[in-house]
Every structure is written in C-alpha cells, then in structure tokens.
Amino acid sequence: MPVSEAVIAMRTSAWLRPMGETDLDAVLAWRNAPSVRANMYTTHIITPGEHARWWSQTRDDPSRRYFIYETPDGPCGVVGFTRIGEITGEAEWAFYASPDAPRGTGSRMEWLALEYAFGPLALQTLRCEVLETNTRVIELHTRFGFVTAGTAIRQIDQAREANIYRLALDKGVWAGLRQSTLDRLDRQQGTAR
C-alpha cells in the first residue's frame, strides 16, 4: 500500500484514513467553525470555491498529505502534513477537529499523526507552528514531546501580525514517549489492556 494511502489505527478504536472528495463538505464546515478559524493564519470564512481550489492543489501534491480522523461514530477531524521532502527527513503538520468532537479527540489525533510521521512517512523530525494565543495546543504538543524551536511573527489575514511558536519533535524522543503516551490515552478512555 502506498504511504499516502496508509491507514493508521490505534487500539482505542480510532484511525486516520486518506482524505477524499466525499470529505470536503465536512472539512470545510469544521474549518469555518469560529473556534477553528480563530487559531488559523487565515481567519475569514472559506468559501466553497476557495476550498475546492485548495483541494485541487493539495490532493496530488507529493509534498502534502491529508487524513481524516475517524472513530466508529464517524469522521471528526483532519490531519495534514505539508512540506514533505523539502528538507530530507522533515515535514510540518497541523490538525483540527470538529467543534462537536468528543473530549480527548485532539490527543488521539496527535498520537495517530505521530505514528504516521515516524512510521510510514519515515521522518526524523516533525515540525509545526502554533499561534502564541493557542495555549491549549502548545501544552498538548509539549505533553507529546515537542520542544520550542523558536518564535516568530506571522502575518494573519494580511491585516495583522501574531506571535507564533515553532515546535519540533524528533523521532528518538517520540520513540521514548510512544508507549507511555498510548497507555495514558487508553486510561483516559477506559480501555487500558
């Protein structure tokens, strides 16, 4: 199975699967939710046309891969990897969930994303950027082993600037945290084995 089509699953009945055309409406709705837009570099409401153009540029681009986070109750989040291969062994990632997603979704999405990044994608380092005001996500990434690799100022909607944190996680650090993190997620969901 090609790396881009890999399905990554966890024992807590959740998985990532490749994003497809049938997911576009749900992803657009999640992306346009006020709680999601508030933490993006582009905060305006994305039109269906903009979304379609983004997808047409993204779906066949080998430097980008997008996945849907799904549970037995249905899809409830998106995970994206970008800049794959621009620097050997590195990529960037981002994610967001449906505003209706159950508590703990972000942690399970992150675990699956790291499994993909350091497994099938075979990265050495995974990077991300987070708005300084998005403290919950910064704290989440830190619990998963990400460290601050710098700060910067980014343009938001061409109307304002915002401080961001650049975070990075190395494969070796994740290898040391992987099992204990999965065990913690299982305990939180009441499915420890």
Results as ranks from 00 to 15, higher is better:
residue 2 P to S: 15
residue 4 S to F: 12
residue 4 S to T: 06
residue 6 A to T: 07
residue 7 V to G: 01
residue 9 A to K: 06
residue 10 M to C: 14
residue 12 T to C: 07
residue 14 A to W: 00
residue 15 W to A: 05
residue 15 W to N: 01
residue 18 P to Y: 10
residue 19 M to D: 03
residue 21 E to V: 15
residue 22 T to Q: 09
residue 22 T to A: 15
residue 23 D to T: 00
residue 24 L to V: 03
residue 25 D to E: 14
residue 30 W to M: 04
residue 31 R to I: 06
residue 35 S to W: 10
residue 36 V to D: 13
residue 37 R to W: 02
residue 42 T to R: 10
residue 42 T to V: 12
residue 42 T to H: 13
residue 43 T to S: 12
residue 45 I to C: 08
residue 48 P to Y: 06
residue 48 P to K: 07
residue 49 G to Q: 09
residue 49 G to H: 10
residue 56 S to Y: 02
residue 56 S to L: 05
residue 58 T to P: 03
residue 58 T to G: 04
residue 60 D to T: 06
residue 62 P to M: 01
residue 66 Y to C: 11
residue 67 F to Q: 11
residue 70 E to L: 12
residue 70 E to K: 05
residue 71 T to F: 03
residue 75 P to W: 08
residue 75 P to V: 05
residue 77 G to E: 06
residue 78 V to D: 05
residue 78 V to M: 08
residue 84 I to Q: 01
residue 86 E to T: 13
residue 89 G to A: 03
residue 91 A to G: 06
residue 93 W to R: 08
residue 93 W to F: 15
residue 96 Y to F: 13
residue 97 A to H: 13
residue 98 S to L: 12
residue 105 T to W: 05
residue 105 T to Y: 04
residue 106 G to Q: 01
residue 107 S to W: 00
residue 108 R to G: 01
residue 111 W to V: 00
residue 111 W to N: 11
residue 112 L to F: 15
residue 117 A to R: 12
residue 117 A to F: 14
residue 120 P to E: 10
residue 123 L to T: 08
residue 127 R to D: 07
residue 127 R to H: 15
residue 128 C to F: 13
residue 128 C to D: 05
residue 128 C to I: 07
residue 129 E to L: 13
residue 130 V to H: 04
residue 131 L to C: 03
residue 133 T to W: 04
residue 133 T to G: 14
residue 138 I to N: 09
residue 142 T to L: 05
residue 148 T to F: 13
residue 148 T to Q: 15
residue 149 A to N: 15
residue 149 A to C: 15
residue 152 A to S: 14
residue 154 R to E: 12
residue 157 D to L: 10
residue 160 R to Q: 09
residue 161 E to I: 09
residue 162 A to V: 01
residue 163 N to H: 14
residue 166 R to W: 15
residue 167 L to G: 03
residue 167 L to W: 02
residue 168 A to P: 06
residue 168 A to D: 08
residue 169 L to E: 11
residue 171 K to I: 13
residue 171 K to R: 15
residue 173 V to G: 02
residue 173 V to P: 03
residue 173 V to F: 04
residue 173 V to Y: 02
residue 177 L to C: 01
residue 177 L to S: 00
residue 178 R to A: 01
residue 178 R to M: 01
residue 181 T to A: 04
residue 183 D to M: 03
residue 185 L to H: 08
residue 186 D to W: 05
residue 188 Q to A: 12
residue 188 Q to T: 00
residue 188 Q to N: 04
residue 191 T to Q: 05
residue 192 A to E: 07
